[in-house]
Each structure stands twice: as structure tokens, then as C-alpha cells.
Design a protein around this nucleic acid. Structure first.
Lengths: 225, 225
DNA sequence: CGTCCAGTTGACTCACCTCAAACGTGGTGG
DNA sequence: CCACCACGTTTGAGGTGAGTCAACTGGACG
């Protein structure tokens, strides 16, 4: 998606080894490699599953996704993971109320992000609006997690993906079943079973695990509600 | 809480009849009764369970709780309710990204709120910080709802209440079990059973349904994690 | 004293989780 | 070219935590 962008910097491959069901190793923060003479923005690349920043790191920067997908998530002490959001091209992430990141950000796919020094950007009306939308998004997510069944969650997720994609009928999932499960507060098996069931219903068609056609959008809307 | 405030207006008792397991009747919006010559702020009182505003209403105002407790929530079409947050004295609510409220606000207890005309208030650094904290809160809530068991949810809730109360040991729950259940994404029975279990554990003592002592705070912290 | 309502408790059910095995595709090496 | 492996995914069988339904409790109020 939006592959036409110039990718000037062959920067930063953070040394984090991502091990699921354990704490992520803290990502080596891109700060160190940034050119502080051009404080406004700097473009960085991350390979799949690399950490961009870790919960508790100093929140000096925030980011904009230029290409690829980024997840922001949090871990419980026993390794359970909750994904807060998937960020795609154009999305901002890494906004913080305090001085530290409250979430961990990692690359879902190989991706390119632009970083902005926090204090260099005015608290403009735009950013305020963005923060408000972030709050709304988080509230929707809480509603999804709190009061919906597995089918309802998966249906909502698929429709959400479709809404983001250019082609609304066939969607390309950029993330693993585990990512989806951790976003929806389910297990990988339940996600898989639910998708299979929707396929049997003729509600969707699964071309390959990551490539799905929404055959009966209306049925999905009904499930979601 | 903070009962020393002046309560100048005996205003607005919204005609909404709150019926659980059905859509709330849209609250009669306080707009109509506001003195538009003093656009900055106006103090309003609401009786228990009255609507303050409804999802979809024009978001002309936002509010600050002066006394009492307010809940913001959303309903699914079948009547399931998800409470987004409980707002106590000092908290702001009713911020919106768009022009309409995305949640419904209702009085949990009799309460007093100050209203602010939206455009009369500058998008100041303070409000921005508040929006960011709201986002953080919503994310924490999503983590709670997505990946935690009933005991963990209840433990987290109790600690949260204690953190807000002056006296950290004995907490006064201002809301019903149904409210708690809808906040935690559980049923009223599960909340009740879990509290009973914690009492049998000697982790808490239940003086009356709404009055609880946290005997073993450490145990609760462990559960929460 | 009876009614009402919030809360509690019990018995049973079921949606989702757990554990385990099989599948399929893409990559590597013989 | 095929055998093999690795890994993400699917499928199956069985267990369990929380939901459902229903009965009971206890304080507030008339």
C-alpha cells in the first residue's frame, strides 16, 4: 500500500527478538540514530516483527506510517498480549499523555514510518482532533471486547479491514491469526474456527489464509450489530 | 464528594426514562435550558439515572463533574450495554471528535455538572492533555476487557475505586452491581460471586453491598497483574 | 406486616479455551 | 526433482469459566 513513497533512509533494524508468550525484548530506540539537526521528521524502516518502541521508553517521538502495518500492544506479566490497534499508511501512533510510551509498537509487516520530535510540533487543532479520534477508536474497541461474541468480533474485524482497504470486497490480511486473536481477545483457534464457519455459511470465501472475500456483506453487518 | 460547591441552578431534570435491556430514551438535551448569555459555563443538576445526553445528540457542550458520579456508555441493538467510564468529581466528559456524541451519559447518583460550550473554549494544552489521558484510559479499559478473567477484572476495579477515593482502605461503591458488570463486561451474578469469593479469601470485607474494605491490597495487586 | 428491589446463591449449560494432531505451502538441501 | 522441514493454519476432542435461569435473602419503605 502506497508503495510509491521515497524511502530515503536504510535506517535502524532494531535488535529486539520478538518472542511470543514472553515479554518482548525492549526495542533499541531509533532516537540514537536520528539526525538531530533535522528534528522535524526522519524516515525509518523496520523489518517484520521488529520493535519500534517499548512500553516505558521515553516518548520523545511520535510516528506516521508511510507504508506497511504497525501494531501497538501491551503485555500482561504472564505473556498474554492485547493488541490496541493496527496502524496502516497515513495513521499516526506513539502519541502519549505522559513522558513514557504506554504501549509497545512493533512492525506487523516490513514498514516505513516517519518520526516527529514531540516538542517540535505545535499542539495544533489537527493533533487534537487526532487524539480525540484515537479516544473514540479505543472506546469502540472496548465495546467490541466487552460485550461481543466471537462471531461478532470477527465480523466487525473483517468489516473494519474492508473499510480500510481500497477494494472493499477482497481483503488482504497483513497480520497473523495470532495478531487477530490478540486484537479481538480470542484464541487463534477460535479465530480460525469462526472464519471456517463463516466460509461454510457462504458469508466469506477464503482464497488463502490471508486473502478473504466478503461475499455477504449484509450478513456481516447483521452479525456485527 | 466535594460537597462544598455552590449549586446555583436547580436546572434540568431530563425526561428520559432509563429502562435497562432496552435502548435509553434519548435525553432531553440541557441545551434548551441554558442561558446563552453566559456561554462559558452553567451548572446543572441531574437525579439518579437521568440522561445527560444521548449517543447521536449534537455535541455542543462538554461537562465537568462537580459532585456525584456520571457514567458514559453505549448500547448494542439487543440491549447489551458497555459502560466506558465512571466520571467522578473533577472529571471532564462529553469531549467529542465529531459533531455528535458517540456515547450516552447518565447520572449514576444524583449529581451536579458544569457545562461548557465547546467552541467557547480554546483548544488549549490542558484540553489536549485531557484528551490524551482519555485515550490512555480507554486503552487500559480495552486491555482489562480483552485479556482478563473475572477475578482479575474485579480486583482491578476495586483497586481503581480505591485509588480514586480519599480513604484507600474502605471504598464506597456509588454504582449498582449491574453498572459494575457492564463496565467489566461480566454479568451481575459473576460480579457478585467473585466479590463473595474474595470475601471468603479474606481479601476483602463486605460491610454492605456498597461498602467494601480492601483487607489484602497486595493480593488484589497480584490478581490484577 | 407485606411489598419491592438490589444483591446473593445454586444448578445447569454452553461458548470459548486447552491440548493435541493433521494440513499445506514455501524454502532448503541432497 | 523430490524429500524434508518449518511454520502458520486448520481441525478435533474434551474441559472449564462464565453465562443463564431460577430461587432465595435482606434491608427500605409504606
Amino acid at each position: 500500500m502506497s508503495a510509491s513513497l521515497a524511502l530515503p533512509v536504510g535506517a535502524v533494524l532494531a535488535p529486539a527478538t520478538m518472542v511470543y508468550r514472553q515479554q518482548t525484548v525492549r526495542a533499541h530506540h531509533p532516537v540514537d540514530r536520528l539526525d538531530t539537526d533535522r528534528p522535524v521528521t526522519c524516515t525509518l524502516q523496520f523489518n517484520q516483527d521488529r520493535g519500534i518502541y517499548g512500553e516505558g521508553d521515553d516518548a520523545e517521538f511520535f510516528y506516521k506510517v508511510m507504508s506497511g502495518v504497525v501494531r501497538t500492544c501491551r503485555f500482561l506479566s504472564d505473556g498474554r498480549r492485547q493488541i490496541d490497534a493496527f496502524h496502516v499508511a497515513g495513521d499516526l501512533f506513539g502519541f502519549e499523555a505522559g513522558t513514557e510510551y504506554s504501549l509497545t509498537a512493533e512492525a506487523v509487516t516490513d514498514c516505513t514510518v516517519a518520526s516527529f520530535r514531540r516538542q517540535s510540533v505545535d499542539v495544533s487543532r489537527d493533533l487534537f482532533a487526532y487524539a480525540m479520534r484515537g479516544m473514540l477508536r479505543a472506546q469502540e474497541h472496548a465495546l467490541l471486547l466487552g460485550r461481543r461474541s466471537a462471531v461478532e468480533k470477527v465480523a466487525a474485524f473483517l468489516l473494519d479491514c474492508a473499510a480500510r482497504a481500497r477494494d472493499a470486497a477482497v481483503i488482504e490480511l497483513e497480520m497473523t491469526r495470532q495478531d487477530i486473536a490478540d486484537y479481538l481477545g480470542l484464541t487463534i483457534e477460535t479465530v480460525s474456527r469462526t472464519l471456517s464457519m463463516l466460509e461454510k455459511n457462504k458469508t466469506i470465501a477464503i482464497f488463502s489464509p490471508r486473502r478473504i472475500r466478503l461475499c455477504d456483506r449484509h450478513a456481516l453487518e447483521l452479525l456485527k450489530a
